[in-house]
């Protein structure tokens, strides 16, 4: 891998000498990774500008590396679909020095072959009771795609979805990989109150609402699990980079799980996914 810097780019040493630091472009051979400004305390590592599973994996790989490194001066790292926002204290580490450290990590990331057996994230099972009062738009999604309700459920539960990022509300997962066969447009008029746990579809995206909130997604079911539990020692059930798989449960099982969630005895079904 070749690390190419734009003509204007500075280095740690140059910055120390007082030279100007502007945008950097790192060429990793496949695509160019850009280092951008987000205020004096933010550095964006942009892997691309589109939604793409491979790109998102690179984002989370770098996020994990940064978490493991504990570089002095980094205050927080926020991974998203296609970029990483690194919050830092410029009085503790200069942007140029931080950029150098990140470039070194990126270079190592490219050079290293993925290690066999290294976990790439968790697979979390999300039990869902589809249709009925829990999924008022399930019929619409089926009709819209010329499918039966059962076929929609079968497709929705068939594969794990990668958690590209969390956002919108605490614990809200933006998932990738849903089949276009069950895609459906958003509601023209968003609902003002959607119950916590509601599972929805918007375009070719799917996800669920961890807390009660307004929203325009088509609701197909509801999960009894709490993805956001602020008082718990593990307040978030999953992280960006993990995978979720929805499984269909009947109403009686929904309520049984809900009781266990409420009395704190529910243990989420989580398995570690090896790098494959």
């Amino acid at each position: 891998m070749i690390l190419a810097r734009s003509a204007l780019a500075g280095s740690c040493a140059e910055a120390a000498a007082g030279l100007k630091q502007t945008e950097k472009v790192v060429d990793d051979g496949m695509d160019s990774i850009r280092l951008l400004n987000a205020g004096e305390q933010g550095l964006v590592v942009e892997f691309g500008r589109e939604i793409n599973a491979e790109l998102n994996k690179k984002v989370h790989r770098l996020a994990r590396k940064l978490a493991a490194q504990t570089i002095a001066g980094i205050t927080e790292v926020v991974p998203t679909y296609r970029s990483l926002l690194v919050y830092f204290d410029p009085l503790k580490i200069s942007r140029a020095c931080l950029a150098d450290r990140i470039e070194q990590l990126l270079a190592a990331q490219e050079a290293q072959l993925p290690e066999q057996g290294e976990a790439i994230g968790n697979l979390v099972r999300i039990p869902v009771c589809y249709g009925g009062e829990f999924g008022p738009d399930l019929e619409f999604v089926a009709q819209h795609n010329g499918l039966t309700v059962e076929e929609v459920i079968r497709i929705h539960t068939a594969t794990p979805y990668q958690v590209y990022m969390l956002g919108f509300t605490p614990g809200f997962p933006y998932l990738g990989g849903m089949s276009e066969k069950i895609a459906a447009p958003r509601l023209e008029k968003p609902r003002l109150k959607i119950p916590a746990g509601s599972v929805g579809i918007a375009g070719s995206q799917t996800g669920f609402y961890p807390i009660e909130s307004p929203g325009g997604w088509r609701l197909i079911g509801r999960t009894p699990i709490k993805a956001f539990h602020p008082e718990s020692p593990n307040p978030f059930m999953f992280a960006a980079g993990d995978f979720l798989q929805f499984t269909s449960v009947a109403a009686d099982e929904f309520y049984a799980i809900q009781r266990r969630v409420d009395n704190g005895t529910y243990i989420p079904e989580i398995t570690s996914l090896p790098r494959g």
């Binding site: 987000a38 205020g39 500008r49 998203t80 679909y81 296609r82 970029s83 990022m165 956002g167 919108f168």
Partner: peptide, 28 residues
């Protein structure tokens, strides 16, 4: 494609008027 928002980020939607993100901003 959504990315992270820091305190003070100035978003410009299609209508062309700035929105400055403050303390309670959503993360993305």
């Amino acid at each position: 494609v959504s990315d992270a928002l820091c305190f003070g980020a100035i978003q410009i939607p299609a209508h062309g008027m700035p929105i400055i993100m403050m303390a309670d901003r959503q993360t993305t």
